[in-house]
Design a protein around this nucleic acid. Sequence first.
RNA 1: GGCGGCGUAGCCAAGUGGUCAAGGCGGAGGUCUGCAAAACCUCUAUUCACCGGUUCGACUCCGGUCGCCGCCUCCA
Length: 466
Amino acid sequence: MSFRLYNTLSGEVEEVRPSAPPEVRMYACGPTVYNRAHIGNFRTFVATDVLRRALTYCGFRVREVMNLTDVDDRIIKLAAEAGQEIGPFTAAHIAAFEADMKALRMERPEIVPKATEHIAEMVELIGKLIARGHTYVADGSVYFRIGSFPDYGKLARLDVSGMKAGARVDTDKYEKEDARDFVLWKLKADEPAWAQWDAPFGKGRPGWHIECSAMGMKYLGDTLDLHAGGVDLIFPHHENEIAQSQCGTGHPFVRHWMHVEHLLVNEETMSKSKGNFFTLPDLVEAGHSPEAVRYLLAQAHYRKQLNFSFEGLDQAKAALERIHGAVRRLGEVETAGPASAAALEAGERAETAFAAALRDDLNAPEAIAAVHGLVTDANQLLAGGALNAAGAGALRERFERMDRVFGVLLPAGEDRLEADLQALFDARQEARRARDFRRADEVRADLERRGIVLEDTPRGTRWRRS
RNA sequence: GGCGGCGUAGCCAAGUGGUCAAGGCGGAGGUCUGCAAAACCUCUAUUCACCGGUUCGACUCCGGUCGCCGCCUCCA
């Protein structure tokens, strides 16, 4: 059950070694629910989804926590402007996020906690840090003193000593002893009462970093097996998580750190501040399927930047159709008899390569290549009439197994033509029977304009949406 | 400035110190088809940014050059 993955902490590809195998306790930094997540955000989420599926496929049992950050500056500000409190304001964004997750065929993590429902855990952790002398108070806010944690900067390989107090523009108005320090508990007197909670050290609300530590440890224990997130979170977010967690518990926080590279647009990072982003609904509205988007995101290697383009999306769609076509045709074979050795061997070969690729630092491109290899083999066997129902079934099962990781390899279920289109379809069949090919071609062209592509096969005419 | 990464065919993209450098998309020709489509067959990088070095041998290791990206600040 070997599974190797790059560990940001060591800078090397390492064996994933959960503390209580076969369970892998993993944490993924989820979204801040103040607007619609864009597909750059989803690149990371899809990559961690592929990881959890790949781990499961390889025999591990995954227990994943993905948080929903539902309290922060932006949320409070936007909610207040909308005249709402946090719950009602974030509910719509959470629903949108979950809809996108579903459309992108993401498995739901076992635990999806909200920050606002874990204030008590955060307060408790901050209390421990206070007791152990890692904090100080300024203007009513509680800060973590970086100087009290010698390993600070290890994950990001940053020479923190170069970060001088006051060296950067401090967007908060708090007075810190050192610019490197970060806030654990914020007191903002000008914020609404619904954004403040009671704590032994005063009214206020949690800083951003503390939620991941508190919720991660609550559900997964002091030491998490795996922690995933976008590369932009390495510093300072994950660095801060490590500092506050380890100083709070005295135990290592995370064994294995996994970071997903950014999605770019025109070679630039896709970000809300740059305005160069697309949401899933944007792409769907432009006529692209969520499945193609997932395929595009999932087939890329997670440690390489991926440049988003519509051409790439089209290529993804074409590749996906090739896979779907082969799987669909496999389901149409009806001849009896035992599965042939050729079919069995092709399936075995493909899945062996597929599994090996995933175990080797989640090499999705190579795993997908194995899928396509099986498509080629299946097509050849199919074209040569060398497949009976048993052989075709064996190959189909391989696709089903591989689809447990990618989630979009199997063609969509039964889809019915709308009544008017069905009438055209029937009319063409009638014309063909009458050998009125002119009429048949006209109808086919008409259907094509309406997004329906026809294929005449020995087993009858098949249609699919373009 | 510091740290990390990348540069492989028209496009996307794996990979290895040593047979012909995965896979997909696109393209060309052919088979099949009433015609198409789909599928199948064949072809589509003597070469892996550039320059040196190590080696019997490098695209893969080392050094340098150029170009690009990310992080060092809220951000997946």
